[in-house]
């Protein structure tokens, strides 16, 4: 029964990874940009929510409702002001710019919040669980995160397939030059893609903060999980990212069941195995 429990918990953990990796997947899918500051952005969202809750004593959901749209706006501006310039130069320069952004974010957070490790108290919701059977307890937080991840991915897929703006994103992802030629303003398209990426990373950052502790330097190690989820699932496919997150979560959870020291290592090994034997990922991308 322990094994079965490990599988359930692993799949639910995968929801968190998928939610976190969605933004990375979208930015890569639409703009071919690998955002190295992705993990740090999640940490910024964690700190921002922490500050809001501490300063106003507001319930956590208020922080979520404020932070997510705020991040989306920030994303749009970051694209238009910072990334757009580097996009014109080439993929290497966007990599360097986002790497620089990552360093700046870490140091600004260090300056403001010090290097202390923090946690975001989610109250009974974050620690509570219900029993599926006598042996298997499902934490509310894990289940809620998983459901949130699925809802977010379904919503983005619907947006991409059913709305004009979404179709424009897919067209730009297929062929940016031609999309421009049929009247799409690529800067706006990229701005929207980045806004979605930032919004989802804010959600993921807050969910993560309730689950585990964080400090200003946590970002890069988290980025690695998102990156692994995207690559395992297949570049450019959101369903793939969900699957990739679940595979990663499952592997880590089962690894922990064998030996806690294997938790992270086993995840990395699966990632390497996918890269070696199925480099296109498990569900190679259709669109965005």
């Amino acid at each position: 029964m322990d094994w079965f429990n490990a599988v359930i918990q692993g799949l639910l953990l995968g929801g968190l990874y998928a939610l976190f990796a969605t933004g990375l997947s979208i930015m890569f899918g639409v703009m071919r940009v690998v955002n190295l500051a992705h993990g740090d952005l999640a940490v910024v969202a964690s700190f921002l929510a922490l500050s809001m809750v501490n300063a106003t004593n507001a319930p956590l959901w208020v922080a979520v409702v404020i932070t997510t749209p705020l991040f989306a706006v920030l994303g749009y501006l970051t694209q238009r002001i910072l990334l757009q310039r580097s996009l014109r130069v080439g993929p290497m320069s966007t990599l360097v710019v986002t790497f620089g952004l990552s360093i700046v974010i870490q140091n600004v957070l260090l300056k403001i919040y010090s290097a202390d490790t923090r946690t975001l108290g989610g109250g009974g919701f974050a620690t509570g669980s219900f029993h599926l059977t006598n042996d298997i307890a499902i934490p509310y937080l894990s289940l809620a995160t998983f459901v949130l991840a699925v809802v977010v991915i379904v919503a983005i897929q619907l947006f991409l397939s059913r709305t004009g703006l979404g179709r424009m994103l897919r067209a730009s992802s297929d062929d940016p030059d031609t999309a421009t030629l049929v009247g799409a303003d690529s800067r706006h398209v990229y701005g929207i893609a980045t806004a979605i990426a930032f919004g989802t990373v804010a959600l993921a950052g807050i969910m993560m903060a309730m689950r585990s502790s964080f400090d200003p330097a946590t970002g890069p190690s988290r980025l690695l999980f998102a990156f692994e989820a995207v690559v395992i699932g297949g570049l450019g496919s959101l369903w793939g990212t969900l699957l990739g997150g679940m595979v990663l979560g499952l592997t880590q959870s089962v690894g922990a069941q064998i030996d806690p020291a294997l938790t992270i290592l086993l995840g990395h090994l699966v990632f390497l195995a996918v890269l070696a034997f199925r480099p296109q990922g498990l569900l190679p991308g259709r669109t965005a």
Binding site: G164, R167, M168, R170, A171, V182, G183, A184
Partner: peptide, 11 residues
């Protein structure tokens, strides 16, 4: 969809 994108964006 290809033509729709054009009607939407360019048109």
């Amino acid at each position: 969809e290809s033509v729709l994108v054009c009607c939407h964006q360019g048109g």
